[in-house]
Computed example of a mutant assay.
Amino acid sequence: MVPPTTADEPIDEEQLDELVGMAVNELGAAYYAPLIVIGDRLGLYGALADGGPLLPAELAERTDTVEPYVAEWLAAGAAGGYVTYDPETGHYSLTAEQAALLADEDSPAFLAGGFHNSVSGGRRSALLLGLVDNRPNGETLTHLGAEVVRFAYDHYGTIGGALEEFASWKGRSTPFTELTPRWAQLARSVAIQYDPTQFIVESLERLHQRGIRPATIDDVFMETCRINQPLAVEVFVTQDRRDDVLTADGDINESTLADPTVYKSGIHFQFKFQLSHIGLLTDGGTDTKEKVLKDEWELVHSIAT
């Protein structure tokens, strides 16, 4: 296989794979998706690929855009690893790998179009979390959504500055409650409006009230089934194992719950970590299947007596 190229510059396929992997991860979180869509639609990536390195003013002139906004977009892109910044000259550019991902529509690695779908998903998530209200005259920020935006401006000056700070938190083991208490409080206000969060908190309250503290994932799953079985199966069980978990009569086959592979990693790893970061659960999650069944689920503060 001949390595792909952009213009005359050969592409480091290992770096490209790493960048694609990072981008796919961002697609799931809709983290930088809006900025990537802006860059694609306004031709910013194409101009950087064709004429870089460029200063913000030069890129704005080439794309007939406004310099202050372009400067913020560039800073956020550099923080996310999608644009390359030279601190000595103040110029921005794209590596061959970044160009293949974001500027070259003929590249097999081109993903910018996928971020358009991610933004749509991001809007749905914002509606779901109560950050945006869908009204007859269009979508508007709710009071909670406006508070999220105010937080970004108050603490970091710009949305790009907030994104840069958020990116630096990735992989940190320090909970948000210690790292940035104000953000943890705000994130908790958002998360507690999400149905799966309420679902898990209610099930743990019930379990703790019965003296089951800490609980295990099968305890939590069975308790959520008592509240709303279809939603519990949707939240906890992988798509390909639902026929195993459910009997022909639609009951739960409890013998399958001792198999850690029936549970979604998203619930016992990422989501559990998020709930611990914002101070709802005592411990983060695990992505090691051998540890899933022994991993402890416990509320930091329970109202159960």
Rank of each mutant, 00 (worst) to 15 (best):
A191G: 08
D8Y: 14
E147H: 13
S302I: 09
D40T: 02
P4D: 08
L16M: 07
L186C: 10
F199W: 06
Q229S: 06
V24Y: 15
S189V: 05
R135T: 15
P260I: 14
L74G: 04
P214W: 09
T286F: 12
I227Q: 15
P214S: 10
D154S: 10
P34N: 15
P3N: 04
F166P: 04
P175D: 09
E58S: 02
T261N: 11
R135K: 09
V24R: 15
R210E: 15
E254W: 05
A184T: 00
T180Y: 08
F110W: 06
A184S: 13
G81N: 00
K264Y: 14
N117L: 13
P10K: 12
N134E: 15
D283M: 04
K294T: 14
E58K: 06
A30H: 15
L129S: 04
D240H: 12
N25A: 13
A71Q: 02
L94N: 08
F115Q: 14
Y156E: 02
E165L: 00
E254K: 10
Y82V: 15
K170A: 10
T197K: 01
S93T: 07
G145Y: 11
A76V: 05
G114F: 12
E9T: 14
T216A: 15
L129T: 10
A33P: 07
D104T: 08
L129W: 06
N228R: 12
H208W: 09
L204C: 03
P56T: 02
E14M: 04
L101V: 01
P68Q: 07
L59M: 02
G145T: 08
L299S: 13
S203H: 04
P230N: 13
N253Q: 03
Y85D: 01
E223T: 14
A23T: 04
P175R: 07
N253R: 11
T174R: 13
A71H: 03
F110D: 04
V20I: 14
E61L: 15
Y31N: 05
I36T: 11
D244G: 03
A60I: 05
R226G: 13
H116T: 04
L179V: 01
S107V: 07
P68H: 11
L231C: 02
F110M: 08
V20S: 03
G80Q: 11
T95Q: 05
R172Y: 08
V300N: 04
L94A: 01
D64S: 03
D195Y: 12
T216F: 09
R206D: 14
Y194F: 13
T140Q: 11
D218M: 01
L299H: 13
K170P: 10
D287A: 12
S168R: 14
A57E: 14
Y31M: 02
T305R: 10
A96V: 00
A162G: 12
V24Q: 13
P108R: 15
W297Q: 01
H155S: 02
G130C: 03
Q15C: 01
L179Q: 10
D219V: 12
P68V: 09
A71W: 00
R150Y: 08
K294G: 08
L257K: 04
H268L: 01
T238W: 04
Y69L: 00
Q239C: 01
L231D: 11
V149P: 00
L257C: 07
A33N: 00
A112H: 05
S265C: 00
P230V: 04
I278N: 11
Q98C: 00
Q185F: 03
E205N: 02
S189F: 10
Q193H: 09
D249A: 07
Y153M: 03
H116D: 11
R188T: 03
I267V: 15
